[in-house]
Amino acid sequence: MVLVGLIIWSAVGPLAQKPGTEVNATEYAEGDCFVDFDAAAESNRTVPCTESHSAQLVGSFTAEADEPYPGRDSLEERAGRLCQAETLALPEATDSLKQRTAYPSEEGWASGDRRLDCFIESTAGNTLTGSFLK
């Protein structure tokens, strides 16, 4: 009986120790902080911004549902402007930070995705411990 318990714990234990809540990319909220952030993933784990994390969603915008696909360059520019429009509380040393934008592909747009996001991400991993939003 003890052996069975140890086998189950060794399989489930490491999963239970992962911090945060898994959130689908379509459900990210402005201000969310992410541990082990992967911009290409369909979901990431959120944690309170006071805990160690590697990225934060600092701006988000959803285009009108009836807007025709404006093209990749236009979406990239709009997402960049979204990032610049945000008032952020950045540290003096920003050499380990990068701005990352996310926007739908033409196929995603055709299926209804109209979301543009701006993230601030650490290039040094889960080293952030506060919010960039004022």
Rank of each mutant, 00 (worst) to 15 (best):
V35C: 01
C33H: 05
L57N: 10
R45G: 04
A55I: 12
D38P: 03
D73W: 00
F61L: 14
S43E: 10
V47T: 08
D73N: 11
H53F: 08
A65N: 11
E67G: 06
S43V: 07
E51N: 13
E76T: 04
T46D: 07
S54Q: 10
P48R: 10
S54E: 06
V58F: 01
D36Y: 11
T62C: 02
S74M: 11
F34L: 05
C33T: 02
F37K: 01
R72S: 14
S60N: 14
A41N: 06
A39Q: 07
Y69N: 03
G59P: 14
S60Y: 03
G71T: 05
S43I: 04
C49I: 05
P48Y: 08
D38N: 13
E76G: 07
A65K: 15
R45M: 07
A55D: 09
C49W: 09
A65Q: 15
H53R: 07
E76P: 07
T50Y: 12
N44M: 06
A40K: 10
E67S: 13
V35K: 10
A65Y: 13
F37W: 12
E51W: 11
P68G: 10
T46W: 06
C49P: 03
E67C: 03
T50E: 14
G71Y: 03
T62Q: 13
R45P: 04
Y69K: 01
P70E: 02
P68E: 13
P70Q: 07
F37S: 00
L75T: 04
C33A: 03
E67V: 03
E64Y: 15
G59W: 00
L57K: 11
V47Q: 08
C49K: 08
A39N: 06
F34G: 00
S43Y: 03
E76W: 00
D38E: 12
E64A: 15
R45N: 09
T62Y: 04
E42I: 04
A63M: 13
V58Y: 01
A39H: 05
D36R: 11
L57M: 15
F61H: 15
S52D: 14
H53P: 02
P70V: 01
L57H: 09
S54A: 08
D73K: 02
Q56L: 05
V47M: 09
Q56H: 07
N44A: 06
D38S: 12
H53A: 01
S54L: 02
A55K: 12
E42N: 15
E76V: 02
C33K: 02
T46F: 06
V35N: 02
Y69D: 03
C49A: 07
D38C: 02
L57S: 10
E51M: 05
D66K: 15
A55L: 08
E51Q: 15
A41Q: 06
R45V: 12
T46Y: 08
A39I: 12
S52T: 10
C49L: 08
D66G: 09
C33L: 01
S54P: 06
A41K: 07
V35W: 08
T50P: 04
D66Y: 13
